[in-house]
Every structure is written in structure tokens, then in C-alpha cells.
């Protein structure tokens, strides 16, 4: 053939002796210890220790500036007869339930909308994320202003501009108005997380499934109910669990807007625990309130564990 090759050398790859460092990093045991230590250390210092301390404090009568002694379940007994505590439990459940339901309804709707071919899609997605990016306290202050008794823009529009009402609404001054106002603020803040997560889930569904369903004669509602909903269920369960956990343990919004008032009507368990423990000085009692959140959180996690258990259709093939 007319193909020519260049000059040939006798180079062969030599045997390379590895240094002690290279051999050390090849050792599996060393690698396991080296890689795990930083993570374990961080977990112990910032998670295990505070959690353990919190649980310990719940069984003592510690006050700020005075060490306490172990008193068993006394803190929990006094909480059992504490109407403010039960009010906080009620509002926490109400707040979590209503806000999560609304966040999911609106978030799913937004996700479906954003999954369509809209003009300026990426811009819209960025705008949707805004409430989530803004620091919570900042948006809390904005809501505080929106819900202000005198300067509320909602009252201004309803009364002065549209004339639908004849008096300003006292959003944060009456218990139920305050409760709903906070739920509204939480929904506003939580929608982006739900919408973006569900949108990611929607995008994993192959478009050809919709085309096949279209040919099979499915209407758009049937496509949603029979294709989208079941295929979205796994990710929906994850997002739902996270959303419930975040909402249940919420603190910032409530503390920044109402601080639990009026007359303790908007205390969440988290804000009440802080109120009693830090400004109130009764660390033991505050810790006990915080600890009593744990059963609720375990319940929510268990729910996700069972809801998330891989469905039969997700399991891999076992061909005969």
C-alpha cells in the first residue's frame, strides 16, 4: 500500500514503582476513615450534640443563668395542662395542613403551566423562584407592612380604591385574621419549592407517553389523571414530606410578623419553644415544647417512608 509510517522507536512502558503516599491512598480502610471523619465530625458537633442537649434539657428545670437538675416528665406534665401550649399545637397543625394543601394545589397548577410551551418560559421560571430566594425575614417584613392595620395596601385597595369595604381590616390584630394572614405568607413563600420540584418531576415523563395516550384517545383530563398523576406520585411524595417538615418547623415568618400574638393565637410550637426558652428564660420548658414536636415529625417521616416505598412498577426487571 502507499501508506507510509514514520520512524519507529523501541519505547516500552516501564514498570512504575508507587510511592508510599500513593499506596496509602490505595488502602480502602484509610480512605474510609479519611473521607468519613470530616462529615461525621460536622454531624456530631452540629446535629447530634445540640439534639442530645435539647432532649436532656427537656427533662431538667434549667433556667438561663442557673443550671438545672433532672426532674423527669415534670415539664411535660405542666405542658399537658397548659392551654397556650395546646393552642400552639392546634395552630401548628392547622398552619401545616392548610398551607401545605394550598401550596400543593397552586404549586402543581403552576408546574403544569410552566411545563407547557409558554413564551418567555425561562424568564417565568426565574420569576417563580423569586419568593424562595428572598431572605425569609425580608419577605416577612414586607408582609408585615402589607398586613399593617393602618398602611395595608390590601385595605387601601379594597376600601379607598374599590370601595368594597367600609373599614380597614385589622389583619394582625384579631386571632383568625392573623392566623390566615400567616398561612397566606407561608404559601406565598413555599410555592416556588413545590412548583419547581414538581416541574422537574414532570419533565422526567417522556413526551411520547402523552403522544401514545393522545392516539389512544385520552382527553387532557384523562392524560393528567392516568399518565401525569401516577407517574408524578413518587416525586410528589418526596416534595410533600419535605414541605410538611419545613412548614411544621417554621419559625422565621411567624416570629418576624406576629411573634405569636395576638394573645398567643398564632404561636407555632417552634416560636412558643423559643419564647419560653430564651426570652422567658425557662430553657427546660422550652426544650420540652421543642421535644414534643418530635413525634409529629417522626409521623411525617414515616408517612414518606411508606408512601415512597418503591411501587411495584418501578422495580427492575426479573426476567425468567
Amino acid at each position: 500500500m502507499s501508506v507510509t509510517t514514520g520512524p519507529v522507536t523501541n519505547w516500552r512502558r516501564p514498570q512504575v514503582q508507587q510511592g508510599w503516599l500513593a499506596r496509602l491512598f490505595d488502602s480502602k480502610i484509610f480512605l474510609i476513615i479519611a473521607c468519613l471523619t470530616p462529615a461525621m465530625g460536622l454531624l456530631v458537633v452540629f446535629l447530634t450534640y445540640p439534639l442530645g442537649l435539647g432532649i436532656w434539657l427537656a427533662f431538667t428545670d434549667t433556667h438561663i443563668g442557673r443550671g438545672g437538675v433532672f426532674i423527669g416528665f415534670e415539664n411535660f406534665e405542666s405542658l399537658w395542662y397548659d392551654r397556650v401550649f395546646w393552642g400552639a399545637v392546634f395552630y401548628t397543625v392547622f398552619y401545616t395542613g392548610v398551607a401545605t394543601a394550598l401550596k400543593f394545589a397552586l404549586g402543581l397548577w403552576l408546574a403544569l403551566l410552566l411545563n407547557e410551551n409558554l413564551p418567555f418560559k425561562s424568564l417565568l421560571r426565574a420569576i417563580i423562584l423569586l419568593p424562595w430566594i428572598v431572605p425569609t425575614v425580608l419577605s416577612a417584613i414586607a408582609f408585615w407592612w402589607i398586613f399593617d392595620a393602618q398602611f395595608s395596601i390590601i385595605s387601601y385597595v379594597l376600601v379607598d380604591k374599590l370601595g368594597l369595604l367600609d373599614h380597614y381590616i385589622d389583619f394582625l390584630g384579631t386571632p383568625w385574621a392573623a392566623r390566615w394572614s400567616l398561612v397566606f405568607a407561608n404559601v406565598w413563600r413555599g410555592i416556588p419549592f413545590v412548583a419547581i420540584s414538581l416541574l422537574a418531576g414532570l419533565q422526567t415523563i417522556s413526551p411520547s407517553l402523552y403522544e401514545a395516550a393522545l392516539l389512544d384517545g385520552a382527553s387532557s383530563w384523562q392524560r393528567f389523571r392516568r399518565i401525569t398523576a401516577p407517574l408524578l406520585m413518587p416525586i410528589l411524595a418526596v416534595v410533600l414530606t419535605f414541605s410538611v417538615l419545613f412548614t411544621f418547623t417554621d419559625f422565621q415568618l411567624v416570629y418576624a410578623i406576629t411573634r405569636g400574638g395576638p394573645i398567643n393565637s398564632t404561636h407555632l410550637m417552634a416560636t412558643l419553644a423559643f419564647q419560653r426558652g430564651i426570652p422567658g428564660g425557662q430553657l427546660g420548658e422550652g426544650a420540652a415544647i421543642a421535644v414534643s414536636m418530635i413525634p409529629f415529625l417522626i409521623l411525617a417521616t414515616l408517612f414518606s417512608y411508606f408512601a415512597l416505598a418503591r411501587r411495584k412498577w418501578q422495580q427492575g426487571g426479573d426476567d425468567e
Binding site: L209, E211, L214, D216, A218, R226, L231, W313, Q314
Partner: peptide
Amino acid sequence: PPKDRDIAMVFQNYALYPHM
């Protein structure tokens, strides 16, 4: 509309409904 054309289609990736 596609459903009224009285046709059936087999897709390259089969497009089987994974949950059924």
C-alpha cells in the same frame, strides 16, 4: 384530531405506560 383518525402507532421507544 389523532384519536379520530383510526390509526395506531408503535413508537421507537415503545412509549409503554410504565405504571400499567
